[in-house]
Amino acid sequence: MAKSTTPTSAPSLLVSPAGRCQLKRYPLRTNDPLQAWDAADELLHQHIAADVTALEATHQPLVLNDQWGALLLPFAHCQVTTVNDSFVSQQGQLANLALNQLSTELTQLDPLATLPQATESVWLKIPKSQSLLEFQLAKLSSELQPGTPLRAAAKSKLFTPAVRELFAKYCDEIDISLIQRKCRVLTARVRSVPLNTEHFMSKWQLTEHNLTLHHHVGVFARNQLDIGARLLLDNLPEPGASEVIDLGCGNGVLGLVYAQSSPSSAVTWVDESHLAVASCRLNIEQNLATTPSYRAVTDDCLSQFTSHSVDLVLCNPPFHQEHAITEHIARQMFRDAKRVLRKGGEMRLVANRHLPYYHPLKRLFKQVKQVASNAKFVVYSCLT
């Protein structure tokens, strides 16, 4: 008998000392194989349950980098504030609150926002980006009361010597647990350290296009142009498209170069990262004329865009979501691009050669052709 090829759904019921809840990734997918929490979340739940003050309704916790609400839900009875770079994660938190029929005094902030001074405890999942981690620790140290208790958790492999040094720079009374289920928990108290904002901004020149690109922490290609984007820049569509979207824009380089070549085009830069969109807005301001025809927005792919409303989508799609390697984000981008493109419109994208995108693209678009390639990447033109 042939084995079933139907993917198995990951568990969605989280049971821990801090409570019992349903938790799903967002956007919802049928038979999603990826779980919405990990062992590090469960270890922090043990600390939440053991903290008597954290369970009080008047407690004001601050939760950072909680991807889908695993750390938020135990604090739903509190005046809780979350900090996330991801717009999609913020939507996932709201969806999981609704799934569990929980209402809360929730404040959602992006990483650049001012932190609430009344914060009484900090709960942090260590992010993939070390530069983002340092920026978050620096903001905690400059904006919260000295001595505020902090708990941070992650897989043990992320507690590198460099990460430990960052915590030592911004925290006191540091203690790191033994490994449990391949994860560790760090406890500490926030130290008062002035914030040097210039330390956390970077920029580099793209001389062939006369661009200066500015980057906040954690933004893709923060130090140089990635080779996939370079191949697409060398093979952009002809100027003249009326309405253009740079989807998954990062620092905005694709849309910036196209806008240079086609100044009559209205260009919208879209990313789910608040820090990417903030970087993109700065790059538009510094490199292009100020005009209502240029805007940068956060979105879950193109969920907020009208169908059949644009002529061209430029895309350098990701194939990871924090620590999870996955193609579903790119495929959602392809479906959304197909929906928002007018008849005769085009999506021009670059992808790693090893990723199996050609056949999914053929099922969506009227015509798919390869316009360029190198040893690692391929550029596709997809026409509606």
Rank of each mutant, 00 (worst) to 15 (best):
M1K: 12
M1V: 12
K3W: 11
T6Y: 05
S12Q: 14
S12N: 14
P17E: 10
L23V: 09
L34R: 06
A36E: 03
W37V: 04
D41N: 13
E42N: 10
H45G: 12
H47G: 10
A50P: 03
V52H: 13
L62K: 04
W68G: 01
W68Y: 14
L73F: 05
P74N: 12
T81M: 04
S86K: 00
Q90K: 12
Q90F: 01
Q93R: 12
L94I: 12
L97G: 03
L99N: 05
L109V: 05
L112K: 06
Q117G: 09
A118V: 11
L133H: 03
Q136D: 08
Q136T: 09
L140I: 08
S142E: 07
L150D: 03
F159R: 02
F159N: 02
A162F: 07
F167R: 00
C171D: 05
I174A: 10
I176P: 02
R184C: 06
L186F: 01
A188W: 02
F200L: 07
M201Y: 12
M201A: 13
S202N: 12
S202D: 10
T207L: 14
E208T: 14
N223H: 15
G228V: 03
R230L: 15
L231E: 05
D234S: 09
L236F: 06
E238K: 15
D246H: 07
G252N: 08
V257P: 01
V257E: 01
A266P: 00
W269S: 04
S273C: 10
H274D: 07
V277S: 04
A278K: 03
S279A: 07
S279G: 06
C280D: 00
Q286M: 13
T291I: 06
P292W: 02
Y294F: 15
V297A: 08
C301G: 08
L302F: 09
H308T: 13
L314W: 02
H320A: 10
H320G: 08
T326G: 07
H328S: 14
I329H: 03
A330S: 09
A337W: 02
K338Q: 13
R348D: 03
V350E: 00
A351V: 15
P360T: 06
L361Y: 04
L364I: 11
F365Q: 02
Q367N: 11
Q370N: 10
V378F: 08
C382E: 00
